[in-house]
Design a protein around this nucleic acid. Sequence first.
RNA 1: GUGGUCGUAGCUCAGUUGGUUAGAGCGAUAGAUUGUGGAUCUAUAGGUCGUGGGUUCAAGCCCCAUCUUCCACCCCA
Length: 458
Amino acid sequence: MSSQKPTIPKGTRDFPPTEMVRRNYIFDTIRNVFQVFGYQPIETPAMENLSTLMGKYGDEGDKLLFKILNSGNYLDGIPDAESGMRDAGSRLQHLTKHIAEKGLRYDLTVPFARFVVQHQNELIFPFKRYQIQPVWRADRPQKGRYREFFQCDVDVIGSNSLLYEVELAQIADAIFSKLGIRVMIHINNRKVLAGIAEAIGAPDKLTDITVAMDKLDKTGIDKVNDELIQRGITYESVEKLQPILTLEGKIKDKFKTLTGLFKDSEIGRKGLEEMHTVLQFLKDLGLNNKFDFDITLARGLSYYTGTIMEVKALDVPMGSICGGGRYDDLTGIFGLPGMSGVGISFGADRIYDVMNELTLFPQTIQASTRVLFINFGTEEEKYCLTLLANLRQAGIPSEIYPDAAKIKKQMEYANRKNIPFVILVGKNEIETSLLTFKDMRSGEQKSISFDEIKNLLS
RNA sequence: GUGGUCGUAGCUCAGUUGGUUAGAGCGAUAGAUUGUGGAUCUAUAGGUCGUGGGUUCAAGCCCCAUCUUCCACCCCA
């Protein structure tokens, strides 16, 4: 019999107990903050109809969707090779439509939009929800990048109040404060970017400009200019963009420069006004972490229309660990126009990596079993089981070794599992009702009654 | 999708210009110690060298393919 090697798909991971304890610590912290701010949980299925997902993330996104092969005889529905489909690309697309009609969710926002439209009559608007679930992307894995990873989304839909932008920044601030990660919250506004595009005379090149500008801190100004030219932006426009690319320093100065630039750009002025409101609130409220008006912040997703934000860890190089923004018409495509929403998403896996690298996990979360009964044999076992039930009733995590193995082996078990206390009950102990209670860390042990032990443990 | 990289014991890694029987540390198991873990000592077990093909008298080492790991680009949490 040849046995096969156990493996899991590329870019996916198993989580052993030690990791799960830490992951749950992150999820619990995030969930608590979400709830304190008045958000309610929902869940959606791992798979959606492909029609729900396709076309929402751009061409790149469509390629990164995991598609699910139809069950049954999926070859049945395939029409014969059709003319006019010579190139492999369109043939593949055509074929895919026939053999796969479901796909794994790519993010939580689009399924949420679908959810809102589908359940619009049952929901109370503004609808504030949070959602913590895995998402899948057929990307190539690398540092901080997985094919299956968890997102923790908070969104509010059905209001265009800027108070919610402020609230989301506060949520991010609260969560990262609790986790002990020092961060910078980058904030920008899509309308400001549109204003810039307009002001430099290239309003139709908004996407190209933002994609290029997004790389400013990574590749430097020269490379950005090169890319702008390559993307078909005129020298004249690039020239006009320079003062903005080199804009550094105080938020006040950025406003000043942009106000001048936006003399003839209504959308730019609107964006600045929104930015002013949000930043003023944040300044007045006072956050633990720093925030900044980051003009180079673009964010790829095409559906953002207003505020965009992104959070980066200060002490470790990692992509963004949290990001989101305002989208004016996400539900329109599902037949419910005019619903404005704003939300952010926390990348739990990256947050884990950051905390791990900075060793920010508190020791206290490691505790599992607190006390182990050593097993001496059938009679002692019976005696211990009653006490064990008693401890468990009192909420003290406890267990008994399953058989009367050598004491050495049982002690080793306790040691390796980091169980801090051990109770030994043999013939002597049963006779005197004084149990041997051992502290595994100090090695000390004493003979005391069960009630005293219970007292010490609670 | 593009370019590179890694793979040898459970883990971390040695392994000479291709040359007999592939090694170490840690870990595991047993004992030194029949009611006591961590430290020490002793012994033992553990390998189709990622997989498949090729070159050669001879391959862990060279060639090809493939899978996997990690990294960069594109994009993104």
